[in-house]
């Protein structure tokens, strides 16, 4: 347990010092939000003010992208010598990966708050009460936690930090064919199946429903199932991959 705390401390410090990655993780979602609200937003018909429609999607994208950079930092560690040093000191995969995942969650709480702050400045007006805020925060945290573990597993799977960077791209583009930026029913028919049933959509619809009072439907349960499922599979996969990667 205490070694896990030292590992968290380490990963948080490394995140703070890795300015390039930190700025990208913060600036990218903000730029995207401003881009969509001010450049594309006027042309997109969503039935509400566009900023109101798009912010939950941007928050989700910000969280997913921020969490996915965990793959890069895990990959850098396992391709260098430090994991061997840790293992020879009896610091195992659990403490090591926990450090990365917890630091990722902390990073994402900070960047989500920043995005939310800027969204409020440019006209986002949520209607949520304290309970809804709490539920939205919980849903987002669980999602970030799940994607962080998934990213840690990917970081252990790939052979280089560059390949891990590719995964962050995949995660960043996943929200486009979802309800993040435009309503799904405006998309061509063949993509509806994917857009409606991929994990980004129920997460975004859950945030939207909780923050803005739109119809939640089954979205929260689907979101819970996706996040929980990704989390369970990823934790198991990360454990197995860590053993396979380091024991050779």
């Amino acid at each position: 347990m205490s070694s896990a705390l030292v590992m968290v401390d380490r990963s948080v410090r490394l995140s703070r010092r890795n300015l390039d990655a930190l700025l990208t993780a913060l600036m990218l979602p903000i730029m995207l939000m401003l881009l969509f609200v001010y450049l594309f937003g006027g042309a997109i018909e969503t039935g509400t003010k566009y900023v109101t429609y798009v912010v939950p999607g941007v928050i989700m994208l910000c969280a997913a992208f921020g969490a996915s950079t965990t793959a890069v930092s895990v990959s850098q560690d396992v391709t260098g010598g430090i994991v061997d040093r840790f293992r020879s000191m009896d610091v195992g995969g659990v403490a090591f990966l926990t450090g990365h995942v917890v630091a990722s969650v902390i990073r994402n709480v900070a960047s989500t708050l920043l995005v939310l702050g800027i969204a409020l400045i440019i006209g986002f007006r949520p209607t949520a009460g304290p309970l809804e805020w709490l539920a939205a925060a919980g849903a987002l945290l669980l999602f970030v936690f799940a994607i962080s573990w998934l990213s840690a597993a990917v970081g252990l799977l790939v052979r280089s930090a560059e390949a891990a960077g590719g995964f962050t791209f995949f995660v960043m583009f996943l929200p486009y064919p979802s309800s993040a930026f435009v309503p799904i029913d405006t998309m061509p028919g063949w993509i509806h199946g994917f857009a409606e049933h991929q994990p980004a959509t129920p997460i975004i619809e859950t945030l939207r429903g909780l923050m803005l009072g739109t119809d939640l439907g089954t979205a929260p349960w689907l979101a819970l199932a996706w996040s929980g499922g990704i989390l369970l599979v990823s934790v198991a996969a990360a454990g197995a991959l860590f053993r396979r990667r380091t024991a050779a």
């Binding site: 380490r10 410090r13 490394l14 010092r17 890795n18 260098g80 010598g81 430090i82 061997d84 040093r85 020879s88």
Partner: peptide, 12 residues
Amino acid sequence: LTGQYAAVDELQ
């Protein structure tokens, strides 16, 4: 154990 790759964090 001190391996062939320096096992220190460059950012610390």
